[in-house]
Computed example of a mutant assay.
Amino acid sequence: MSEVGYAAAFLGGLFALLSPCSALLLPAFFAYAFPGHAALVGRTLLFYLGLCAVLVPLGMGSALVTGFFYGHQDVLITAAGAMLILLGVLQLTGKGWAIGPLERLRGHVSGDSPGAVLALGAVSGLAGFCAGPVLGAVLTIAAASGSTLRGAVLLALYAAGMAAPLLALALVWQRFDLGRRRWLRGRPLRIGRLRLHTTTFASGLTFIGLGVLFLAFDGTRTLTVPIPEAWEVGLQQAAAAVSVPDLLVVAGVGVALAVLIVRRLRKVGK
């Protein structure tokens, strides 16, 4: 059993974007990006937390958690698909419902609300169970080694790799203020007695489409994508073969965070 390092775990999550199991990621981003013009990076970080909420407990090697997820996968897939469809219907009709303290900041669930974005991340994590040999290696090592901390960190990094392309999209979206461009700003829309908006309408349809796809393809496990399987397998194997000292990865992350904090403080000070 080969050891999987931090860099390999991150790259495994990044290359999982080419896997059918991760087919929800890009549509999920647009589902919460369309109706939200601001704080898109923050929403993407919430999406990442949703991924972690599902993947990290699995990486901790708990037999109870693993047994729950794998033993009730069909029920979880059905519930997740139904939830996405319900969120889409609520978004289409402009309705909402409160789901706890988190939603009191916004009042109700909508396509770009914290609760909906967290749910999207969790559903994407649920779909990502079958995404690539790197994930399988991490889960096997976590279960065999008994090191819950290392397993949790590896899965958090794997989830970070999955979320990295979405974060890059969010940064570009906000940098060029795409949400306020005329072609994305949308316009009011009336269907019968319903008064809607084209952006929330598109978001709602995306939610519903994701829910239907999730139910129809067994949580995306039976979904195929127009990418040669050899590419996906090759990239995953290349990720697993990457050997970068974990300490160097930690140092790199620390430097990146320090640079971001300094830039943020300079902006605040201006």
Rank of each mutant, 00 (worst) to 15 (best):
G151R: 01
R195P: 02
L149N: 04
L213P: 02
Q174G: 05
G186V: 11
V138L: 15
A144Y: 05
G204N: 03
T198Q: 06
G132K: 01
A137S: 15
M162D: 08
T198K: 01
A159N: 08
G151L: 01
R175V: 05
F207K: 00
L139M: 13
S147P: 02
R195D: 06
D177F: 03
P165Y: 11
F207S: 00
L155K: 11
A152D: 03
R150H: 13
R195C: 05
A137I: 01
V212H: 08
G151P: 11
A159D: 11
A168P: 02
L210T: 00
L171Y: 14
T199C: 06
R180Y: 07
L178I: 15
R175T: 05
A170Q: 07
T148L: 04
G209K: 02
L194E: 07
L196R: 13
T200K: 04
G136E: 07
R185E: 14
R190N: 08
R185S: 08
Q174A: 09
G161I: 02
P188S: 14
L171A: 14
L139Q: 10
F129S: 10
L149S: 10
P165I: 05
L171C: 12
R150L: 13
L213A: 15
G186T: 09
F201W: 15
Q174M: 13
P165D: 08
R193Y: 06
V153I: 14
Y158L: 14
R195M: 04
R175A: 08
D177I: 08
Y158M: 03
G186I: 12
D177H: 03
V212I: 15
W183Q: 10
S147C: 04
S145A: 14
V138W: 02
C130I: 06
R193W: 06
W183E: 04
T198H: 03
L126S: 06
F176K: 05
W173P: 00
L184M: 14
R190Y: 03
L189S: 04
M162S: 07
A159W: 05
G211N: 02
T198E: 09
L184T: 03
A160L: 09
T200D: 13
G211D: 01
L169Y: 15
G128Q: 05
G192D: 13
L194V: 13
T206Q: 05
V153L: 12
G209Q: 08
L213Y: 04
R193L: 07
L178D: 09
T199P: 02
S147V: 07
I208R: 00
A143I: 05
A137W: 00
G209E: 02
F129G: 01
Q174I: 05
G186N: 09
V153A: 12
L167I: 12
T198I: 06
R182S: 14
L205A: 12
T148E: 11
R175Y: 02
R187K: 11
A164Y: 13
G204E: 01
R180W: 14
T200M: 05
W173C: 00
L139W: 06
G179W: 00
A160D: 15
S203H: 01
S147L: 07
R195Y: 04
V134S: 07
G128R: 01
T206G: 06
I141Y: 05
P133V: 12
A168K: 12
L194C: 02
